[in-house]
């Protein structure tokens, strides 16, 4: 399956694809951007798919916050062990060189800046890198944060993987989050089905587009044409 780039653009230049990406294709795009040998935490849900696209020789070591480094793929059949699960409580396997540790150590690895990359899902990301991914804010919702707030401020680079628009067509990359925040200014890059964006103190910049022109995408998001970094 080929995915995104229409050519060998030089680093940092916007690249494009002729169609909106599936979540699997997007996972492949993210997998290619993860540096070889990195220590990486993949959030529950869609980001888990990224593991399937990491090259076998990437040397990437997956961290799961329930206490393991060098986590292997999902366990099947006889390999299922109730004592070995990922953060989503799905049975997984261990790779040679795996290590187990307790929860305080596991979160010290994040908070202490030892983890290179974390990829999370999101309800909303703001152009300044604010993240909202734990609570819809609905009055009857039972709040549940898990490790999201620790991860958001923990890894050296926090990427978000999400669809760019809600089912009703509202952008999820926004000037300012309206959902309750998970972390402030913590996200550096946003991977979506329609494009890839850098976000942060200087605002938003389009890196790649998928199935839509950069100009049209900027318009749909309300990014000003004069200064594409601002919304």
């Amino acid at each position: 399956m080929t995915t995104t780039s229409s050519g060998q653009a030089h680093a940092g230049a916007p690249r494009s694809a002729d169609h909106r990406l599936s979540m699997d294709e997007l996972a492949a795009v993210i997998a290619r951007d993860i540096p070889a040998g990195a220590f990486v935490n993949l959030g529950i849900g869609q980001p888990t798919k990224i593991a399937d696209h990491l090259p076998a020789d990437s040397g990437v070591v997956l961290h799961t916050e329930n206490g393991m480094l060098n986590m292997g793929p999902k366990a099947e059949g006889d390999a299922v062990d109730p004592d070995l699960t990922n953060a989503g409580k799905v049975p997984v396997t261990e790779l040679p060189g795996a290590a187990y540790f307790h929860h305080a150590d596991s979160f010290a690895m994040m908070r202490g800046g030892h983890l290179d990359v974390c990829v999370l899902g999101a309800y909303q990301v703001a152009v300044n890198g604010d993240l909202a991914n734990w609570h819809t804010g609905k009055p009857d919702a039972i709040p549940a944060v898990g490790g999201a707030m620790d991860l958001a401020i923990g890894a050296k680079d926090v990427y978000v993987m999400m669809t760019l628009f809600t089912r009703s067509g509202e952008p999820k990359l926004v000037p300012r989050c309206t959902y309750p925040l998970t972390g402030v200014g913590c996200v550096s890059r946003v991977y979506t089905d329609c494009g890839v964006f850098d976000v942060g103190p200087d605002g938003v910049r389009i890196r790649q587009t998928f199935g839509i022109g950069a100009h049209e995408l900027a318009e749909r998001l309300g990014i000003s044409g004069d200064s594409p970094g601002r919304m």
Binding site: H103, F107, G147, D150, G154
Partner: peptide
Amino acid sequence: YREGKIELEVVPQGNLAERM
């Protein structure tokens, strides 16, 4: 929780571990 029969304090997972 919805019947108001139990109190809840939500603590981020790393803080839960580190506070203990």
